[in-house]
Design a protein around this nucleic acid. Structure first.
Lengths: 190, 190
DNA sequence: ACCTGAACACCGTTCAAGT
DNA sequence: ACCTGAACACCGTTCAAGT
């Protein structure tokens, strides 16, 4: 159950800028995942240097902008209404939620996409959050003997990576359902 | 069984430039999938405009540069030694080959990656080639009653998309094997 | 017909100068 | 401490001028 680390005290204007950049970045990246950092800085009314001071790389900004969404998704894996479901249904339901998030936030898809690659530093944060959530759901099913024990959370994250390669403009739901059925079925013991 | 379309007669220097750009692009993109077009033009000894005359977009160049590799992969799907295998083994063996290609050519991975997204124009070409090859292997198994009939070639392409999100620097083979087992198992009838 | 390469608008990133 | 915004090196792309 990941928790936001205690914020270091910053000067008031720095805090306000940080918040404003994040707010603008979320909107801009949702509209266009390739939005330029300069344009985000300009829209936020700060100098380019200020953006770089707070977010040394593009990844830092993307990760921070979608932290909320990712945390919501991750928290859902530990929620009581997920715990009530049997392990297989819990996993499947959580993946459905994952698809929803990915399809409504274009920029979030980039972040999740990067999360399936094993790259250093910031991207690893989302990767870690997601694999921890998957591991939690996976272990429940493995202990109950309902899910295969020879697959890791990383394996599963890769296997459902198709979720953010679907076309949001298309009728993606039936395709997502077919493929999730295939994967979740493959995760069953025996 | 896709075939290269008959080349339109071009001036000799244009043909030579075309070939040289492609040669340089293959090497450059393999080394770094984000290699700049200007740097490729410079290395090829042509002006930037010449590169754009032959390849109006980056996608055109990437697709053309890896045409050979993709065609080799696609042709393998129709090869006699694949035809000798039972349908499930044929599919699995072909996916193994796909992983090999993806892991040794960084730029090819970008092209394949784009191929799983339904984007217009040039990228659709690789998508079409790959889905045709998959459809061929799929239909053999479906007619033999060994593979599920409710999945399309597009579904399968998405399902194995993890192959080009593996980390070439890591020990990816066991992970690819685990996940391919999972998918191919899910494709089996019943 | 085709090529060159300077030019344009833009990008990410840095850093002196300000408060 | 933190911010600004001009500056730098680079990118993709265009297009007048050449052959």
């Amino acid at each position: 159950m990941p928790e936001a680390q205690p914020e270091v005290k910053k000067r008031a204007d720095a805090q306000a800028n940080y918040a404003r950049i994040l707010e603008v970045a979320l909107a801009a990246l949702t509209a266009d995942p390739d939005a330029s950092l300069n344009s985000i800085a300009k829209t936020a009314g700060v100098g380019a240097g200020t953006l770089y001071r707070h977010f040394p790389t593009r990844d830092h900004l993307v990760v921070a902008a979608y932290r909320h969404e990712v945390e919501e998704l991750v928290d859902a894996a530990y929620s009581p209404w997920i715990a009530e479901l049997n392990p297989v249904a819990a996993l499947r339901t959580w993946f459905d939620r994952m698809a929803q998030y990915g399809m409504t936030k274009a920029g979030l898809m980039s972040a999740l996409d990067a999360a399936t690659k094993s790259v250093p530093f910031e991207r690893a944060e989302i990767h870690g959050l997601l694999t921890a959530a998957i591991a939690h759901l996976l272990e429940r099913g493995q202990q109950a003997g309902e899910l295969r024990a020879d697959l890791t959370a990383e394996d599963v994250l890769l296997a459902v990576g198709f979720l953010w390669r679907l076309d949001p403009a298309s009728d993606w739901r039936p395709q997502a359902a077919r493929l999730l059925d295939l994967v979740v079925d493959g995760l069953r013991a025996q």
